[in-house]
Amino acid sequence: MSDWYVYLIVFGTGGLVCLLGQILVIKTKMTTARILVTFVILGVFLQAIGVYEPISEFCKAGVNVPIIGFGASLAKGAINAVKSSGVLGIFTGGLTATAGGIAASVFFAFIFGIIFKAKTKKL
């Protein structure tokens, strides 16, 4: 297991990323889809310019769990695949690297979609 201060770093940095998201929500009235798109592209960008790895080394789950990590995996997959298989890698790399997450989301959504029924917000 990691040392206790690692969890503190993860909590702090993960919280900060979400805080940034919340500021965007308040300032720009962005909806869920726009927030997710913004952060995915941010992740792709950070990976492309090569700063994601060192950040991820330090923050660990603090950036891997936010959707930024999803974007970073897409970009990393594309870059690695280009290295190994050239042009084809452009097409196969990104989605191959993130296939697990997408397939899991779709599968669980399908299963729970069949089982459960939408309930009126009770707030």
């Binding site: 929500v25 009235k29 909806t31 869920t32 939408a118 309930k119 009126t120 917000k121």
Partner: peptide
Amino acid sequence: HFSTAERQFRFPLELGNQRPPTAQWTVT
């Protein structure tokens, strides 16, 4: 009906989003 209006005009009921402060609640 709150739930029919919500799905037609806004988002799925179970989506974890926040309602903007100026929003109103469709009466059932």
